[in-house]
Design a binder for these strands. Sequence first.
DNA 1: ACTGGATATCTTGTTTTGCGATATCGGGAG
DNA 2: CTCCCGATATCGCAAAACAAGATATCCAGT
Lengths: 300, 300
Amino acid sequence: MDAGDLRVFAAVARLGGMNRAAAQLNTVQSNVTARIRLLEATLGTSLFHRHSRGVTLTVAGQRLLPYADRVGHLLAEARRAVVDDGKPKGPLNVGSLETTAGLRLPPLLASYAADYPEVDLVLKTGTTCELVEEVAAHHLEGAFVCGPVDHPELAEEAIFSEELVLVTARPIRHLDELLRKSSLKTIVFRAGCSYRDRLDAVLASRGMVGVRRLDFGSVEGILGCVAAGVGVTLLPKGVVAAAWREGRVAVHELPVAESQIDTMFVRRRDAYVSSALAAFLDRARRISAYPAPGRADAAE
Amino acid sequence: MDAGDLRVFAAVARLGGMNRAAAQLNTVQSNVTARIRLLEATLGTSLFHRHSRGVTLTVAGQRLLPYADRVGHLLAEARRAVVDDGKPKGPLNVGSLETTAGLRLPPLLASYAADYPEVDLVLKTGTTCELVEEVAAHHLEGAFVCGPVDHPELAEEAIFSEELVLVTARPIRHLDELLRKSSLKTIVFRAGCSYRDRLDAVLASRGMVGVRRLDFGSVEGILGCVAAGVGVTLLPKGVVAAAWREGRVAVHELPVAESQIDTMFVRRRDAYVSSALAAFLDRARRISAYPAPGRADAAE
DNA sequence: ACTGGATATCTTGTTTTGCGATATCGGGAG
DNA sequence: CTCCCGATATCGCAAAACAAGATATCCAGT
């Protein structure tokens, strides 16, 4: 059994047919068939059920598939690790929440890009759920998300600490005023953003349950709706500071227990930390105002 | 880059020479040289420094070596996972502390061996440190050790709960009596056994520090020395029960906080749990008197 | 300069891999 | 029932990779 064999095995399993796999692997069908049969012979087990519309995995094949993927990833990572000579360069794909990207990352990215021009940095924004999945699937080297995520395959480290504030159209004395408005809506990021859960919890603890939600994809959109009186939202203080100064919205601070939220950097526990990522993280830690002793390390 | 290439790379790196590697791989030196050179060419980096007494790794080679090992382990594990059809069979290598092996495992092993005759079970005894290393290095599928071990690559689960007792030659009213004997020794397992650390802590909290130690490799040897008045030891109550009933030694119970210790089963977090191991663990959990709610799971 | 222990290179035979063509199988339409 | 379509299985041949042995080379110690 060999890494090459596993590569064709994975392709056949995923595409459900040897013809399709052959096309994807830039080879011919007879070749794929031969290698699969050889693999089955050496393992002494049949890996696929053959039928008229292609092939499906046997139970033994199902057990093998995850290993094929892991071996593939490991080899790719090994290649990257060997090529990496300690100087940050090459691709660096990281993810971030949109709020973090807007509020915290600009100075970080600016100085990083200036000092390491050979790094091709790609920043993908998304919700905590989406980003965690992408990191777990090896598609991103790491991401800034709302913590803690507590995923067994991921290591996390607190980088920023945000103060969340309730944002409304006009100042209110007491949250109870919100209750009077039956048409109250919470305006939040699309499903998966942790701020949404936090807002629900804040309102629920004050007796407001089952409030209707309005999903939005951008900070500006959310603030626009809030300013128009459609509903309330929960965002980091820094993000709404500009809109607040301009008088477009009103902010309301919350007790520390409810307002404080950590932005963590997550990465796969077992993945290679490229020089580019190491330098990026180092700079992120320096720029962050996060108190050193409270930092949760990867060993946690 | 291929799994086979990494296998010869790892052999060369570990043995420090292509001749030695060729011998171990059952091939000839020219072959090894060729494959290494090809590997270096495809990676675009030199992996070894050649000199008159063999080869040593370059920094790039040092980065690659751990991946070579991991790929090797992963492939071996994949083979096992495919062959494993759900019925426990084949080799099962587990480790255990000697005390646990003597006190808890006999009924477990007896019933397991009776129900699964196709499993070739090998039990290796050692200290917590040794066993943890062996499990981490993939040499054992799992082991019973003193917990918690808190190793990032290992998952642990509490199985047994032991009550440790202080063992002396003759009954004493108060621990202070021990202080009078200037020649007092602690008689413990060889370095690495957690019981030793616990005993040091127990004595230290009562003002006895710097007590001389005597290392021993077997429970019987330790009890013999204690009975002869050479010193004191700390062992699970059940282990010394027989010697105590015969009047050879005296036991002294300790406060719960000091006496209670968990025996955990550790295994690699990322390793495949063979059917043989799954059945073994299942039976261990059933036999154990460990309270179910307090069980720390692998997810911890 | 010689020697012992090491890697590099070259040649040749063997094995593996890749490709193309063809055989085979199984279900659905006519 | 037969034909056809979309699959996999099998075979022969060429190309590439690999293994083995013989030989060249390099380097330190004597």
